[in-house]
């Protein structure tokens, strides 16, 4: 049996199926991503897995425990970081960890945890006076204070500035390296690409793809795009005649050429032969974001 198993999970709200037959497995030590547009059913899926929500049908097993029937045992080994969950404003960092630590049988060394999360100087700072990034780190610390085997992190970096996001990513990798299996719910492509070993893309309550980030990108095709501003006008046919080129599009002075294979070299050599200089030349590879759009027909942010 896999470390975490979700099979044909269904959760219905009224007549709407928020989760409609989701299946995946997660291996021990993995960072597993659950990716999808807002309202796709990501959070409901992990809530059924955490035992915070009762599933309507399907089978879920986390380390051999059923979240529905063995929720309390499961919560001893599960660390959960929720989106938008605060603490009392006047509760201090050290007190919060001490309090939450008392809920678990195997509590972590809170001093070490505070240091590891870069909150060493903030022990006596009340929650309400912490920055967004510090609150988020405290939230991760609370999810880790019971020395969990599995951590579920939901929309971890939403609302953080770019530096705080990168720091958080490093932290997650450290946590995984310490032997914790991680399920990461996100709608950020860069985050998924950077951190996840494998990903499930969920859309309208269904898994539409399950693969490594590289595998998903490859699925969207090896298409590339070359953009530049030509020094002299030329006819589209000049490029369209090339076997590598599929499409030529113009917007203002800019030309965007889409195609496959050795597109960049084909385009630049034709331009050079015609004494056209390509200024502001850029090559764009297919990203996970393109793969996402291809799979769901939606942009990740909406």
């Amino acid at each position: 049996m896999a470390f975490i198993e979700v099979e044909e999970l269904v959760k219905q709200y009224g007549t709407e199926r928020a989760v409609d037959g989701v299946s995946f497995t997660v291996d021990e030590g993995e960072i597993f991503g659950i990716l999808g547009p807002n309202g796709a059913g990501k959070t409901t899926t992990v809530e059924c897995l955490e035992g915070l929500r009762r599933r309507d049908s399907g089978r879920v097993s986390v380390m051999g425990l059923d979240p529905g029937r063995e929720g309390t045992e499961l919560k001893q080994v599960l660390g959960i970081q929720l989106q938008e969950s605060r603490l009392p404003d006047r509760l201090r960092v050290g007190e919060a960890l001490d309090l939450y630590g008392s809920f678990y049988k195997r509590r972590a060394d809170t001093d070490e945890l505070i240091e590891r999360l870069g909150l060493g100087g903030k022990r006596k700072t009340p929650f309400g006076k912490l920055s967004g990034g510090q609150q988020q780190r405290l939230s991760i610390a609370l999810a880790l204070v019971g020395r969990p085997k599995v951590a579920v992190l939901d929309e971890l970096t939403t609302g953080l500035d770019p530096q705080a996001r990168r720091d958080t990513w490093d932290l997650i990798e450290q946590v995984r390296d310490s032997g914790v299996t991680i399920i990461l719910v996100t709608h950020f492509m860069d985050e998924a690409e950077r951190l996840c070993d494998r990903l499930a893309v969920i859309d309208s309550g269904k898994v539409v793809a399950l693969d490594t980030p590289a595998g998903l990108t490859a699925r969207a095709g090896d298409e590339q795009r070359v953009r530049f501003r030509p020094s002299a006008p030329f006819a589209d046919a000049l490029l369209l005649d090339l076997p590598e080129v599929a499409e030529v599009a113009r917007s203002g002075p800019q030309v965007a050429v889409t195609g496959r294979g050795n597109l960049l070299q084909a385009v630049t050599s034709v331009l050079a032969r015609n004494h056209i200089v390509a200024a502001e030349l850029r090559v764009e590879q297919v990203s996970l974001e393109d793969a996402f759009v291809a799979l769901t027909g939606k942009t990740p942010e909406n």
């Binding site: 955490e50 919560k75 929720l82 605060r86 603490l87 009392p88 609370l142 019971g146």
Partner: peptide, 11 residues
């Protein structure tokens, strides 16, 4: 503020 919700994630 989700304080109760956070408690639900613990034993």
């Amino acid at each position: 503020q989700g304080v109760l919700r956070r408690m639900r994630t613990t034993p």
